[in-house]
Design a protein around this nucleic acid. Structure first.
Lengths: 164, 164
DNA sequence: GAGGCATGATTGACGCGTCAACAAAAACGA
DNA sequence: TCGTTTTTGTTGACGCGTCAATCATGCCTC
């Protein structure tokens, strides 16, 4: 089982290295830009973006977690921090005593409105602009294929949440 | 400054979504495989891999950090944890009283020898096998271009360590 | 060789994520 | 209806990374 390992050749190692560096550094770079130009971290931005897509800026914690593909506990921890910052507020859910409705506060909306243009520019300037049309499409299909493969191997996050 | 933002169209959003999911999920999937099939986390694997490329399995903490592109404090925290697990050992550096030599222990070598085949298989099966040759090359150049762009924007990790 | 700056490494506080345990409420089934 | 199971959400412990502060040592220059 280990003697027939197909190791990477030099060229494959180069590709792998470039990809690994990107996978490892991209997210933190995005966070850095966000924190520098607004008062929001990447995850906070995600939460507020999801909320602002909802009708009233209100979503049940359950649905928020599902939409983001996160564990409930992760969301819970983050919401606690965001609540103390005044970005979101909790309210009991009238139809289900277990549930909580999460709503964006005015400060939360202000923050994401302020952060959005810079965030989009970051993506545009660093992901789309530097690539050719072919590279964009290849990147797209490659990303989907890799994800599908990992999912098939049962190693993707939240294996249960793969409904389209 | 915000009114001329070039927002993403529907197709671009699809690409961005796929890429973001990959960037967000790949690393944790790799970690999951590693932890499942060995006793090593992803970062521990990186440290041991770097050490095993050195002559005697010994590297100064400074060089280890440089090679991995990490902050010293990050390495320090991790080494403390790895030392308690018996994966590495510290020894004072004879030529520089400030420095420390980090060496792999027998347990450390055993662990990475055990982990390596599964790790390589993960990469091979989920990154290389699912892609066409064209996609591989496009992925390679796209990753490099995106990284270069972020670096130019001054947002890449460790802006100082960009000597190639 | 004494002052001053650079380098190497550690520490502590804090944000963040995972995991396992938990409590309360809902849904289900006989 | 009563008991079991599922769902929802929180909490605490712990691993992990960043940042700022700290400290000792090396280096460099006058």
């Amino acid at each position: 089982m280990s003697s027939d390992t197909r190791w990477l050749d030099a060229h494959e190692q180069e590709i792998w290295r470039a990809l690994r560096e990107l996978l490892w550094g991209f997210e933190s770079a995005m966070d850095r830009q966000l924190i520098r130009d607004s008062e929001l971290s990447g995850v906070e931005y995600s939460v507020l973006a999801a909320l602002s897509e909802a009708d009233d800026g209100i979503l049940r914690a359950r649905d928020l977690a599902r939409q983001l593909g996160w564990e409930r506990s992760r969301l819970s921890h983050l919401l606690k921090r965001m609540e103390t910052k005044g970005l979101v507020a909790r309210a009991e859910c009238p139809t289900d005593l277990r549930g909580f409705n999460i709503m964006m506060t005015t400060a939360g909306r202000d923050a994401i409105v302020k952060a959005a243009p810079g965030h989009v520019s970051f993506v545009r300037e660093n992901v789309f602009d530097p690539l050719t049309e072919e590279e964009r499409e290849a990147l797209h299909s490659a990303a989907m294929k890799i994800q599908a493969s990992i999912r098939e191997a049962g190693l993707w996050v939240n294996p249960g949440v793969q409904k389209g």
